[in-house]
Amino acid sequence: MASIFSKIVNGEIPSHKIAENDEFLAFLDAFPIAAGHTLVIPKKEVDYIFDLEDDVYSRLFLFAKTLVPALQKTVPCIRIGISVVGLEVPHAHVHLLPLNSMDDADFSKKIKVSQEELASLAAEIRSNL
């Protein structure tokens, strides 16, 4: 069965896209822990990030890196953190997290954001790419 991320890639589930190419997709987390919380995924479904082929793994992180300046310009923060957890969705992905303190990296604390706010934020991040 396709993961929720594969359904996003296939357009079956809407998302607030930030950037994409033939191989990767970046979109705002629907249940963020911080404003600008972005997920970066390979379009090809692979469950465990360390099962990605080495070249795909490297390109995933390089693709994620290209998003950081736009995130920093859009969301006031000290830096963009990166996290790989891998338990919540069986599809390799990284979290880009705007951080001002270690508390901002607490995955047990979700913030409330409307679909309209996510759409506006995604548009602003895209405009800063």
Score class of each variant (00 low, 15 high):
F107M: 14
V68E: 15
L62D: 06
R126E: 06
S58G: 13
V75K: 04
S108D: 10
A64E: 10
A70W: 01
L99S: 01
V113F: 00
M102K: 07
L62E: 12
A70K: 01
D103Q: 12
I4A: 12
L39W: 07
L60A: 05
F63N: 11
P69E: 13
A19T: 03
S101L: 04
A19L: 14
E116I: 11
V46H: 09
P69S: 11
I78V: 12
K43M: 05
P42T: 15
P76L: 08
I125K: 05
V94H: 09
V75P: 08
D22C: 02
K110W: 10
I8W: 07
E124Y: 00
L67C: 07
V56I: 15
L62C: 06
E117I: 01
S127G: 12
S127H: 02
D47E: 15
L118A: 13
F61D: 07
E88R: 06
E117N: 05
F5V: 09
S3F: 08
D55F: 02
S6W: 00
H16M: 02
R79K: 15
A105N: 10
L129D: 01
E23P: 00
E20C: 06
R126C: 03
F61H: 15
S120K: 13
I4R: 10
T74K: 08
S15Q: 05
F50R: 04
D106R: 12
V113Q: 14
N100R: 12
Q115W: 00
A34M: 12
S101C: 04
V56R: 09
H95G: 00
L62K: 11
K7E: 15
L60T: 03
I4W: 02
L28N: 08
E12Q: 14
V40L: 03
V113E: 11
L25N: 05
F5L: 11
S114T: 15
D22E: 15
I80V: 15
D54K: 13
L121S: 02
S127N: 13
L129C: 03
T74N: 03
F24I: 07
K73L: 07
K73C: 01
I80P: 01
E45Y: 03
S120A: 11
I78A: 14
G86M: 08
V89L: 07
S101W: 10
H37L: 06
I82T: 14
P98G: 05
A26R: 04
N128I: 07
P98V: 06
F50T: 11
V75C: 05
I18S: 08
N100P: 00
V68W: 02
P76S: 12
A19N: 07
I33C: 13
L97T: 09
L28T: 09
K44W: 00
N100K: 14
